[in-house]
Amino acid sequence: MKILAVCGMGLGSGLLLRMQVEKALQRIGKQADVEVADIGVARAMAQTADLIVTTRELAERLGDVKPRVITISNFVDLEEMIRKLKEALQDL
């Protein structure tokens, strides 16, 4: 499974999302490859991803993409991440 963490430049906040997703996966006991993408290439990379994690305003920029998109409002709230990931992974 591949999860894409998307932010504006694919640097700081995207990496933060990736680290949070990895932490959350560990807690849930699931495995996945987590990659960081900037908003410019995210649409192309979405083709091969199973799930996208980003913020609300960037989700709007992404528009319609194949995988399900989770939006995170608090970058450091691990509980929010776990809850949303669990929900999304159940449907996959």
Partner: peptide
């Protein structure tokens, strides 16, 4: 306290960005 990249502040006020 983790000191994080500036876009972590964006969700608090997207229009202000």
């Amino acid at each position: 306290l983790p000191a994080l990249d500036c876009p972590v502040s964006f969700p608090y006020a997207p229009n202000a960005v």
